[in-house]
Nucleic acid binder design. Sequence first.
DNA 1: TTCAATGAGAAGTTCCGGTC
DNA 2: GACCGGAACTTCTCATTGAA
Length: 373
Amino acid sequence: MKLKIDKNNWEKVKLIDVFTKREENDKVNAKKRFDKFLKVEHMDKESLHIKRWSSQEKGDELNPYFYKIFRKGQILFPTRNPHLRRTALASFDGICGEKTLTLEPNEEFIIPEFIPFLFHSESFYAHTTGVIIGSTNPHCRWRDVANYEFLLPPKDQQNQLAELLWAMDDVIKKEREVLERLNEASQIAFENEIEKSSGELIPLSEVLIPKKAKSQVPHKINRYIGLEHIESGAFSCIEFGNSNEVLAQCNIVEEGDLCYSKLRPYLDKAFIATFQAVSTTELLIYNTHKLSKEFVLYHLHSKPFIHFVTGKGFGTKMPRVSHKIIGEYKVKLVDDEDKILGLMRNFEKSKTNMNTKIINSKALQKSLINQIF
DNA sequence: TTCAATGAGAAGTTCCGGTC
DNA sequence: GACCGGAACTTCTCATTGAA
């Protein structure tokens, strides 16, 4: 989608000309005044929305260096690792880390609804990553961010563009909500169907057939699946990296293989491969018998299974599970697997459609942002 | 020889102290 | 008090080790 924008009357401004950096720190009472606190890990890449946070009420512990207060409507920009593209729009008042810039738009020049998208433009990313300093801690300074220059449209045009950008954002938000509901509903449906079915309980070790194929450097298969490419709770893996950049021995994943991440089992990373790839050796690769891979995958994502493996994790630095541990989990050898899978496939079809819609909507939104800023 | 288990090092995040 | 940057800690990748 190409926008016809005449930028002749747009004014070149520096970020510091149209934003005020707020420093509202309360080392003594911030903890008592605000329940919610936001860590960098709560901010998603290339998203303005805050979907997660920690809460003292829920028992999350507030770090001693979290005393910086942010207010609803402020732009939150973590200066550490700016290449990770994490900037959020505060949707509530709370506490954040000292290294997060809290920026307030100056309404004399800009319309608050318009400007947040600037922080997810390629131009802003290029600037902030270009001014990174520090070898052990890559970061940028406020004075370098403040000097970022961009073209600012007149206010009436800002209004029109804000409407367009938020309309697109709303589409993505609604599509994500639908996907979330579908995930919840399919999980409940699966557990109900298993409960209703009759059949003998058998350990997963009688179902799973480990695949041991390895790939040595240089890898002949182009795609690489690392743990960072696997979304928690997802049934397929959409993202991948380039195996040319991987210097280690890998597992070979064939299309249709059942894959399970043994590292930090509570992260719930399991999927059926939709393409051939090499992968991190933290992935266990399986074929199955007695039950289909698809059917077993629903078990691997079920709450009882995650609870089971989380409790059995071992290792000094990071909890892991092994094939042996997974094999101890008991599943029902149901008589009507096809009937259950038929129901689940309807869910999967809807989920795949929704995923495709989200990917397309995000690409369109990105294109709009980069045409404007 | 194979492969599960482990830990070193890289990358990312929070803590902490110095300087202006 | 704000700003800055290194230290310390956590998480993840990947090479090595040792048991089978």
